[in-house]
Design a protein around this nucleic acid. Sequence first.
DNA 1: CTTAATATTGACCATATGGTCTATATCTTT
DNA 2: AAAGATATAGACCATATGGTCAATATTAAG
Lengths: 234, 234
Amino acid sequence: MRREFKKKSKILLIDDNYEHLVGIRELLNLEGTFDVVGIATNVTVGLNLIKKSQPDIVLLDMNMPDRDGLQGITEIAKLDLGTKVLALSGYDDADLIFRAMKLGAKGYVLKTMASAQLIYAIEEVINGKIYLPLALSSRFFEYFQQSFREESEKQTSDEENLLSYLTQREEEVLELLTQGVTYKGVAGKLFISETTVKTHVNNIFQKLQVNDRTQAVLYAINNGFLSKKVKMGV
Amino acid sequence: MRREFKKKSKILLIDDNYEHLVGIRELLNLEGTFDVVGIATNVTVGLNLIKKSQPDIVLLDMNMPDRDGLQGITEIAKLDLGTKVLALSGYDDADLIFRAMKLGAKGYVLKTMASAQLIYAIEEVINGKIYLPLALSSRFFEYFQQSFREESEKQTSDEENLLSYLTQREEEVLELLTQGVTYKGVAGKLFISETTVKTHVNNIFQKLQVNDRTQAVLYAINNGFLSKKVKMGV
DNA sequence: CTTAATATTGACCATATGGTCTATATCTTT
DNA sequence: AAAGATATAGACCATATGGTCAATATTAAG
């Protein structure tokens, strides 16, 4: 009884497979706690519907022509209506999962999952949580760790990181170079003469086997010199 | 009976809290499917024990002096014995969880969790899976998405990405600059005179509001010029 | 104590880089 | 046809950058 008075969550479905779309709508309508405010077979139409009906959550298919699905996440986020996106996909492509989550999807579910689990996922997301089924989060983490592993392997693969040969002072100089500071600036900041800076810089070039500051900076960035930052394929 | 013959998984515990260490050992011994081959109250000792006893899995406390826990993950990985690490922590610090997983931990559990869940986690990890309790994976994903959100906001926060004002030709020149190519080199590669390169470069500086090539390159890298790469706080 | 590594500086020079101004030649758009 | 954006290029100049050699002070290692 009381449930009748509780405001239903508004949900919108986007999937290029019309039959599937209708199927899910029926399922959710049967469930009764959701209000399916619209369905769309492509992102463009979906975006317009979102603007009009301002759903709480969008069930967005990832396996659509081009990369409409991923782009859809971004575009829905751009609307800045706080719409939550639950990604939906036919298979557990780790790369797709990773990208979807990176772009801000609040969850990712498979079409093959039991309807009860789908409904549970929707509820969790509406309640502000992030929902990734165990199987998918495993895929995600494998992919996640893999990309970092490759990255760190790449860094040390050239025998040793040449950066390790730099002396402390040389590192200080290089750090300033990576901030775009000029020689004169470095001299000022380190309270040494410009000549000294040049000497250090020359030694840095020798050790990093480069011929100019730009290459040195690039080497530093690409080899984890700014240890706080790590790059990651997207 | 047959279980007696099944090879038990070797497990090693590292935690600076000795009582906790002993407690877990007792728990695992009671369980019977594990063989606790060693305990250590610091990483250094732990590493030596790992080398000797080659455990399948290490339960590694994250809340140790300095950042011993995180470093421990890296150092265990460096041993290259295929040792799996299950991180253990007193509280659900999102940053810690994120870093631990990034460094290759196969899972993360809280000391407050029911012992049954701990045992389940250990078994999952031993079986090659990644185990993150729902609550922690939520923390993880919030943190994960947050860092990407901040990154993309940072990129477009200055109204618009200044890179978008560059003409096609200017982009080509800038791209070569980001590869450490000299003016002469650019001229050669684009079949134009060095003077023309300089003109383009000057225009680039104007548009990006910088004064030298290093700054231009840094701007390009930090603002998604190499759109395939994204940086991420670690 | 002696040697080696590091940090510092000066001098000198060649070339690269960056700033400014002017001037064509295309190409697109109005 | 005219206006605007783009790509091209020369001239001139000031400064920054990079290369090389030599020298001193300090510190670390043997």
